[in-house]
Structure formats: C-alpha cells, structure tokens
C-alpha cells in the first residue's frame, strides 16, 4: 500500500494544493464579505442597535434562501454567473465562485449569532459613554465576540473542506476529487482510506487550532 501512496505522492500533493487554494479564497471571501454582512444583520435586527425592520426582512430572507440550496444544486444553478466572473465554469479557480457564494451567508449567519450572544448590558454601557456605532462594533462587538468568531471560522473551515470535495465534480480538483478518482473509479480502497485519513487529520488540525486560539482570546472564565 505504501508503495502505491508514494507513487501517487505528486498527485496527492497537487490535490492538497488545490484544496488549500479553494479554501483560502473561499474563507477569504467569507471573511471579507461575511463579517460585515453578519454585523449588519445583527445591527438592523429587531430590537438591536439600529433596528431597520424591512431591510432586515429582505436580507434575512436572502441569506436563508442561499443557505437552503444544497451545494451541488447551487453550483450548477449559478454556472452562467460563474462563467461571467471567471470566464469559465470549470476548474479550481471557477469553483471558488459557488463555494464563496455558499460560504458568505453561512458565515454571516454564524457571526450574527455570535454577536446576538453578547450581553446587551455592555452595549448599553458603550452607548452611555458616548460611543458611536462604529466604536460599538470595533471596541465592543468584535472584542467581546472574538472567541466566538474564531469558533465560527473553525466551523466554516471544516464545512467547506467537505464542500470543496464536491467541487471535484466540475473539475475543481482537490483532495476529495482525488479520493473519488483513485479510490472509487479505479477501485483502490487503500488509496481511498489514506485520503480519508488525510482529511480527518486536516480537520483535527483545524479544530485544535481553532480551540487553542479561541481559548487564548477568551478572558470570560
């Protein structure tokens, strides 16, 4: 078995590289768009800092609709859009589009939930000392919610590691695609087992990293 794995090492390396590439850009998009979107959802939700009922209803519905799509169907459904943005709907680069569109509302919702958990009292305190909305966001919400946000990043990373394997279907490549091609189509159970073990180790690393960082940032206990 080891011989076969060593033989396949270049392909495995390439597949891992593709997976990291997809994860990097997807998580980047989730962070850059999802954090502001989650913060906005929190701020305008009923009873919050700057409640706006109608915009919240619209945004909330959009987030729910996108999150409702099974990833595979979303990926196929937005092919024209992907082609428009990336020039092609195939390949590792193209697959970042559906992955990001799926990750952004997921992450936004997680961020919103983290912020909702923050004690309303400290927000009132911040208002009482004359903090404006921007200062409340940066100095209170993100500071008090930081370990929760790290937890959300950990969760989204693990989910999208799994989603990125589906991406193999449209030529996205990556470690999941490798497992299907060698483990399933070529019927090499040992290669399949090795790949799954690799993914398990990856998830463990992500989870442990998330826990350690989250704990270091959390001064509540």
């Amino acid at each position: 078995m080891m011989d076969r794995i060593i033989e396949l090492a270049p392909q495995i390396n390439k597949a891992l590289g593709q997976t990291f590439y997809m994860m990097f850009w997807t998580l980047g998009a989730a962070g850059v768009v999802g954090i502001p979107l989650g913060t906005l959802l929190y701020l305008i939700r009923p009873g919050s800092v700057m409640e706006r009922r109608f915009p919240y209803l619209v945004l909330d519905a959009i987030v729910n609709i996108v999150r409702s799509f099974p990833f595979l169907i979303l990926m196929v459904a937005i092919i024209p859009f992907t082609r428009l943005v990336m020039g092609s709907s195939l390949g590792t680069r193209a697959v970042i589009v559906p992955l990001s569109i799926s990750a952004i509302p997921d992450f936004a919702r997680l961020v919103e939930q983290v912020l909702v958990e923050i004690d309303r009292g400290v927000i009132e305190m911040a208002k009482s000392v004359g903090a404006n909305t921007r200062q409340i966001i940066v100095s209170v919400l993100y500071r008090e919610g930081r370990s929760g946000i790290v937890g959300a990043i950990t969760m989204i990373t693990v989910s999208f590691l799994s989603y990125s394997t589906v991406a193999g279907l449209v030529g996205g490549g990556g470690i999941g695609d490798f497992a299907i091609r060698y483990g399933y189509y070529r019927y090499e159970p040992a290669v399949m087992a090795f790949t799954v073990a690799l993914i398990i180790i990856l998830v463990q690393i992500i989870q442990t990293l998330g826990r350690v960082i989250g704990r270091a940032l959390d001064k509540r206990i």
Binding site: D119, G121, M125, S128, G130, S139, V140, D218, K219
Partner: peptide, 27 residues
C-alpha cells in the same frame, strides 16, 4: 455623564485597566 449599572457591564475580554480606559479611548 457617568453611569453605573446593576450588573456592572464590564467588558469581559478587557482587563481592569482597559475597562476603566474604555470611555477615555472612546473620547
């Protein structure tokens, strides 16, 4: 206008120094 509360409303992720400094850094 200073204000104190029943449940203190301290920032849990901030040290005592940072909590007291909070209104000053806001200003």
């Amino acid at each position: 206008i200073g204000m104190i509360f029943q449940h203190f409303n301290l920032l849990a992720n901030c040290s005592v120094f940072e909590n007291v400094a909070f209104p000053l850094s806001i200003a």
